[in-house]
Design a protein around this nucleic acid. Structure first.
Length: 584
RNA sequence: GCCCCCGUAGCUCAGGGGAUAGAGCAUCGGUUUCCUAAACCGAGGGUCGCAGGUUCGAAUCCUGCCGGGGGUACCA
């Protein structure tokens, strides 16, 4: 049950004889910011009055007269210039709690018209350790995937790996020059990581050696790697064989981290997958007159002030624009995507703007293409986050530190938990903290990474949500309640205490929050809701005894609110890819 | 040069036509014989970068300016 939608419906009915187009007033009914204005407010009398040439307060009065909603609303009040303040009936709200209690989907209806989404996220370069730069794409993309699926959409996740670029030249070079056979036998995945890091170091040294030269001298190691990459792309038998041999190991290295983050992809079609299609794509774009030759390269001109997009370089190599075009075609023709979401750094905005324009010219205009932008991760100094040595922070090291810090907190606060459970809780809290901190931020802004803020037990953090869940579950444990059996019962709910009512109002808003989050692909709408739920729960927990309630019926009534709180918090967190343990 | 994003409390950030602009941290004060105090309650703190404009109503939309960041033909 989505209360906003219900209200919109009733107001639309009330407006049929008044407004030319009642649909034009959608979005003017919303939860109030201040509860002295009621629970919801309808702000449509002002614009409607303007349209009708009447006084706003008169229109408000007429709307209220025509409105048929006393089955769930108190009599509406008109305030100020023509605000209509709406208050839900207590008995109706209590009744809703009972329905929610027996609803596995916690009030969320599946969308009437499911769409087919393809979500492109994470997309790291293989053969190269993942670093913080991949964090946001991976976490935000996964959250969107979960949110859209829960709403009933068909979702395909596709990890568009960078598996065909220069980093593979580096690996091949490393393999040929520095391979440790023994290490390869015992742990090939680790050997791949070692080779990559080794070659990267060699390139750095070679570069440093030539730094004094006046001219920027060619870096011999880097040059050797480029050569190996070129040979791979030309189809050199040995390099292709090495690529095929090494790919699974590189994939395994990525999978380890994805598993730890609880992230899964339906498809992993990297750049290499589209390699055979690239010449055809360019041919077609030339044939259609979209691409032209310029300065020895094949390019597409887009606008007066825009640089052209390159689809084939003068040395004959294709660009990632070409690959991305082939990828769109695949997603449109094979996956039948209605919408493709690219969860990618805002710095690539121009690339996607060009890509989408070209795709439309190419004839793929029936598919909605969206660049889901996000800002950079910054250090506390406001600069892009780096290690002390100036390198990129590796994702795994970051996760390790988060878990380690969480472990310390768990040991301090819950010494009674067995060591193994402490470990599991620390993992959930640490990883959850990293995810939640990222998701709770408006994705379009840059985000300042702070351990203290992330792992704080107070405020809008993952740990606070997890703690709220643990406190609820603790009540059931202390009360010796067999939850599964107990949930089969039917318990009248009363909302006499103000904190009970506040909590119920939050519990009923999951559908609104989900819609908001899915509408603009903004997971922070979801975290914001979880905070708006956990907060009144904490107050309720403080002020309303549950197990020691005055009567058995009040106890059960409150248990229903508790159970709903933990279920919605757990579900909400799950939709963000965050696990909430039963105890912490 | 051109294009994009940002500027809100001391700090980190929500809010992106609707009522007196919110939260966390920090600061100050209060709460524990009682279900997890990893908690709760309260107080102070604002020229929403500046100036115009549109509107019944602007932090929100438009224009200009100032400040910060990013992108900008052969890396992805």
């Amino acid at each position: 049950m989505n209360v906003t939608q219900l209200l919109e419906q009733r107001f639309a009915d009330a407006m049929t004889e008044l407004a030319v187009d009642p649909g034009a007033f959608a979005g003017l009914i919303k939860p109030t910011k201040d509860d002295k204005h009621g629970d919801y407010q309808a702000n449509l009398a002002m614009p409607l009055a303007k349209q009708l040439g009447r006084k706003p307060r008169d229109v408000a009065e007429e709307l209220v007269r025509r409105l048929q909603a006393d089955d769930f609303l108190e009599p509406p009040e008109i305030a100020g210039p023509g605000f209509i303040n709406l208050r839900l009936r207590g008995d109706w709200l209590a009744q809703q709690m009972q329905s929610l209690f027996h609803d596995e989907r916690l009030g969320v209806a599946a969308v009437p018209k499911p769409q087919r989404f393809v979500i492109d996220f994470s997309s790291p370069n293989v053969a190269k350790p993942m670093h913080v730069g991949h964090l946001r794409s991976t976490i935000i993309g996964d959250a969107l995937q979960r949110l859209l699926r829960f709403l009933g959409h068909a979702v395909i996740t596709d990890n568009h790996l960078g598996d065909w670029g220069t980093q593979f030249g580096m690996l091949i070079h490393g393999w040929k020059q520095h391979l440790d056979d023994k290490a390869l036998q015992s742990d090939p995945v680790q050997e791949m990581v070692r080779l990559y890091l080794l070659v990267r170091e060699k390139i750095k040294q070679a570069g440093a050696a030539s730094e004094d030269d006046e001219e920027e001298a060619a870096n011999p190691v880097a040059e050797a790697c480029r050569l190996e990459t070129a040979k791979l792309h030309e189809g050199d038998a040995e390099n292709v064989r090495l690529w095929q041999q090494m790919m699974p190991w590189c994939q395994a290295e990525l999978d380890r981290i994805y598993q730890r983050l609880d992230i899964h992809f339906d498809y992993t079609l990297g750049e290499s997958h589209y390699n055979p299609e690239l010449p055809g794509v360019v041919q077609e774009l030339i044939a259609k007159g979209i691409a032209v030759e310029s300065q020895g390269a094949w390019v597409i001109f887009l606008g007066e002030n825009e640089p052209p997009a390159l689809i084939r370089k003068k040395d004959g190599a294709f660009t990632y624009m070409t690959t991305d075009l082939a990828t769109i075609r695949h997603r449109v023709k094979v996956f039948n995507a209605d919408t493709i979401l690219y969860v990618v750094d805002s710095r690539q905005a121009l690339h996607f703007q060009q890509l989408f324009t070209i795709a439309r010219r190419w004839g793929l205009e029936q598919t909605r293409l969206e660049h889901i932008v996000f800002g950079s991760v910054l250090g506390t100094d406001g600069r892009p986050i780096k290690t002390r040595e100036g390198g990129a922070i590796e994702l795994e090291a970051l996760l390790d530190e988060a878990v380690q810090r969480a472990r310390k907190i768990v040991e301090e606060n819950s010494p009674e938990l067995p060591a193994e459970e402490q470990r599991l809780v620390a993992e959930a809290v640490g990883i959850g903290a990293v995810k939640y901190a990222d998701l709770s931020q408006n994705r379009t802004s840059d985000y300042v990474f702070s351990w203290d803020k992330m792992l704080a037990m107070n405020g809008n953090t993952g740990a606070y949500m997890q703690y709220a869940v643990a406190r609820v579950r603790s009540i059931f444990r202390k009360g010796g309640i067999a939850v599964e059996d107990w949930r089969n019962g039917n318990y009248p709910v009363t909302l006499a205490h103000p904190q009970e009512r506040q909590l119920a109002l939050a519990l009923i808003r999951l559908p609104e929050a989900l819609n908001l989050a899915a509408q603009d692909f903004r997971p922070n709408a979801m975290t914001s809701y979880l905070w708006d739920l956990a907060k009144p729960y904490s107050s309720f927990f403080d002020q309303c005894p549950v197990l020691k309630a005055e009567s058995e019926s009040l106890k059960n009534s409150r248990l229903v609110l508790c159970d709903l709180t933990s279920r919605i918090l757990q579900q909400g967190l799950a939709l963000l890819g965050i696990h909430a343990p039963e105890r912490m």
